[in-house]
Amino acid sequence: MSMEKILDKARLNDWIAALAKGGDWEVHAPALEDGVWTYKPVGDAVRMDHPNTKQPPKGFSFPQREVFFSFEQIKGEAPRLTQVMPDAKRRAVFGVRPCDGRGSVRMDRVFADNVNDPYYQARRKNVAYVGLACNTPPAATCFCKSVGGSPVSTDGLDVLLTDLGDRYHVTAVTETGKAMMAVAGSPLADAAAADRKRVKQVHHEAEAQPQRAVNNPDAVPAKLKASFNSPLWEELARACIGCGICTFLCPTCHCFDLNDEMTGTVPIKGNRVRTWDNCQFPDFTMHSSGHNPRENTAARLRQRVCHKFQYFHENFGMLQCTGCGRCVSECPVGIDIVAVVNKVAEHVA
């Protein structure tokens, strides 16, 4: 039995206060800071009129930097290691768009379902996503529908909110979501039959909004596989400047690096640190010999595109791209993953 409620927008803050107080949740929501929509701990007022945040909520389960353990060795003694686990705080993230909810599903495949990454899992189990359906016209760079998503998808979310003007329709997606709604008390009223009807209509209209598209996405993995040696990659990457925007802003890019950061020398002291890494950087695949198997931007662009649309599909049976469009809108030189995939696929007989 699904749980559907109605929330007056004016009472959104009451629900958030109840979560913070009764449910011990640290609530985060999008805030406009320095012209950039960013998830921030909630202050007095929550705005949810954001198109999408500049960065996806991926950092809640996979932060850009995290310490795995600290180490110390006094000369002549055995080294001492101390594991550093994430705090156990529960975090509720409001305003997550459906593309980013689906991004979280893909991150889980990598770090929770496929391997046992205790750091990721410790954070993930304490994060809940309160999604917000996209029922305004999509951005020019949105393409969730052609990669299996939807502007009203609930994948990866715990609760889905739908904006009905002066009210939100609130649906629980998971047990966690139900529990979060249960602590709300009076702000969440039962949804009347008319509300249920209205939300269906709104979702239907949202799904009917035209978007740009990856053509024939089912055929894309095989077509990319056949295009590995295509000279097209060089042409498509010609303008690429090799920065890390596309991957650092991606809801599903998950490559990382491990480094020991020294904090002292006598005794030797430091931290083992995981940071995001980036397949678009020249040093990503650099060997210590000086050989670099992906030595140019063409090889690196191909890697990113094929990871999203071929390798991940081969490994997990789903496309890794969720169509959020960040890499498209933020690329300094206009490299457009939709155009790239379509062009490469088109050139396969």
């Binding site: 920065c243 925007i245 480094n259 980036n278 950087f281 210590s288 300094p332």
Partner: peptide, 21 residues
């Protein structure tokens, strides 16, 4: 993300002080 460095025509060094290796 180093976009500021990557987009700069003057940042042409083959090896930059910030590169990890």
């Amino acid at each position: 993300c180093f976009a500021c460095r990557s987009v700069c025509p003057m940042c042409y060094c083959e090896e930059c002080v910030v590169d990890s290796i």
